[in-house]
Write a protein that binds this DNA or RNA. Structure first.
Lengths: 139, 139
DNA sequence: ATAAAGAATGCAACTTTGTTGCAAAAGCAT
DNA sequence: ATGCTTTTGCAACAAAGTTGCATTCTTTAT
């Protein structure tokens, strides 16, 4: 239990540091997607702002987290679940939901993004779907 | 032709100013979605940065433009086409495409976002779909 | 056509967000 | 434990976004 963060780091061939463990813990403890700001609020006294930026960047590159687009200039990040990475290729094919009431963004892991057919000449690499509205807790 | 911008403003009950016309012209001339930065680059000598922020905000509120979420901290805006506003309610139900090559984001107006069924308890208000890959021009 | 009322703009100052280089510290493998 | 590599913190900076207020421009009613 206590080692979950460490395990994730080792699986990604990253060295285990206090900052990385802490940020992973914050993700593990929070059920929803977090913006840089959210993380900073929780550990600014322990770690430098720059470290948080760099850590998120590293996690992204390793596929530990994925980012969720937004229209409010607050890119949010969420832990990837295990099946996010298949044969070195990363793909989040689930829908994201942002609640207008509580502001939280969550992964709807069970909800697969439906396939679409792009016009002639376009090639798809990634696909992202974000739904906003009211979540089940706020309803 | 020359009046197109003015018409849009009048239809939205906005006063017609040089800045607003200019920004509309920039949108009308560009086939793709524009970030604040893109607009600023084209008219920074004429208009203050703050004016551009406020103008985009106003256009958004009036439903003249819509914003497209992104993971690169550059929210982009695109002109809404006429059927975007139905009975006071605004809805972009088309797919957006961002090209990894040229960086341009476009509206695929003909491509309607497929309906999805949210889990029990969730209410949908808006839905957004952004696909990235290579566009037909860069292919 | 003009004057008054209201709205938009520019400016200045400021806050927040993100980036970079470099020296110090911590982690890792032997 | 030691040396090598990676990560971190700091400082300085650049870019992005916000706010209040005085001035200027639009609109509307005469």
């Amino acid at each position: 239990m206590k080692k979950q963060g460490e395990e994730i780091l080792k699986n990604s061939a990253l060295s285990v540091t206090a900052g990385r463990k802490r940020i992973l813990d914050i993700f593990l403890a929070s059920g929803n997607a977090l913006a840089h700001q959210d993380i900073e609020m929780q550990c600014a006294e322990q770690f430098d702002r720059v470290t948080i930026y760099r850590t998120l960047q590293t996690f992204l590159e390793k596929g530990i987290i994925h980012n969720i687009p937004s229209t409010d200039n607050m890119v949010r990040y969420a832990l990837c679940n295990d099946n996010c990475i298949t044969s070195g290729h990363h793909h989040d094919n689930h829908v994201h939901f942002k609640c207008d009431d509580c502001g939280k963004t969550v992964c709807l892991d069970d909800l697969v993004i439906p396939a679409i057919k792009l016009p002639q000449g376009y090639t798809m690499k990634e696909i992202n779907m974000v739904v906003s509205g009211v979540c089940k807790t706020c309803k």
